[in-house]
């Protein structure tokens, strides 16, 4: 049965909406069509491409692993804690979402840079963070973690606390109950959160540029390689962009498939 509501009470508004959707999608279509197969092959053969792709993939994988391992327990805590401090921590976690990436970059430099707060202490034990691959990972973790934590906490809030209580009465110790009930029930949401975090880490640009620099093979990820290529070779920039578009497309597909593949919605909800 179809609802009797109108498709839009404001037809002109809907038209404006479709223009907006065009603005969102058309540039990517143009991008996809603006490179010939030869140009594409030449682009991925360029000496800039392989190191940037390798660095992007390795740093984002490390970042997402760090985010999931450290973010899952805090997301659970945020979901179940009734302490007032949980609200404060929840707000702190959202901070990087509203901060411009450039600000995050400056803040990281002021904190871990040579002349930053922890700079001398790190120097004393022979550790330099800025302008290393570690700095790339730190920048990605800071900007991407909130997306995972937020999604994971929401997924954990959806877990019926009674299911955990039942698991306990059925003989499962608290840790087992969490691992066998709470975690798998929230898993689709966790996967969505990890995918969002990965996408955000993959696209990370501003904080990385300021905190880690743009050094080929060490800190030059794909987005930074696009910046360098634009100055010399626009075709190469287009090819690099296409690779990121493809990775983004894969992620979007995964995001939509995850709840269906992992969730209990294999059955129609009544």
């Amino acid at each position: 049965m179809r609802d009797a509501r109108p498709l839009s009470p404001f037809p002109l508004g809907l038209l404006a909406g479709f223009v907006l959707v065009g603005l969102l999608a058309v540039p990517f279509l143009v991008l996809a069509l603006s490179s010939s197969p030869d140009e594409f092959l030449a682009g991925i053969g360029s000496p800039v491409f392989a190191p940037a792709l390798a660095l992007s993939l390795s740093t984002t994988v490390v970042s997402v692993i760090v985010i999931v391992i450290a973010g899952t327990p805090i997301a659970w805590w945020l979901a179940v804690s009734q302490a007032r401090i949980a609200t404060t921590v929840g707000v702190l976690v959202q901070l990087p979402i509203v901060m411009p990436p450039a600000v995050v970059g400056v803040a990281l430099l002021e904190t871990f840079g040579r002349r930053g707060v922890f700079g001398p202490a790190l120097d004393a034990i022979g550790v330099t963070v800025p302008f290393t691959s570690a700095a790339v990972v730190i920048a990605q973790v800071v900007v991407a973690a909130p997306f995972f934590i937020q999604a994971a906490a929401n997924a954990f809030r959806e877990v019926d606390p009674e299911a955990l209580r039942v698991a306990r009465t059925l003989g499962a110790k608290p840790r087992t109950a969490w691992l066998r009930v709470a975690l798998p029930m929230a898993l689709p949401g966790l996967v969505v959160g990890a995918s969002l975090a990965w996408a955000r880490a993959l696209g990370e640009f501003g904080a990385t540029l300021l905190f880690a620099g743009n050094l080929t093979g060490r800190t030059q990820t794909l987005p930074l390689a696009i910046l360098s290529a634009l100055e010399a070779d626009v075709d190469l920039a287009v090819v690099l962009s296409l690779v990121l578009v493809a990775l983004g497309g894969l992620l979007l597909g995964a995001l939509h498939a995850a709840p269906r593949l992992l969730g209990p919605t294999r059955e129609v909800r009544r």
């Binding site: 009674e162 299911a163 209580r165 039942v166 009465t169 110790k173 798998p184 898993l187 209990p264």
Partner: peptide
């Protein structure tokens, strides 16, 4: 005794089924 050692059968109002 912790819950898991009490040999209780518990059916909550919301059923608490494991959705996964």
């Amino acid at each position: 005794l912790p819950t898991e050692a009490r040999r209780i059968g518990y059916v909550p109002q919301s059923y608490g089924l494991f959705t996964h």
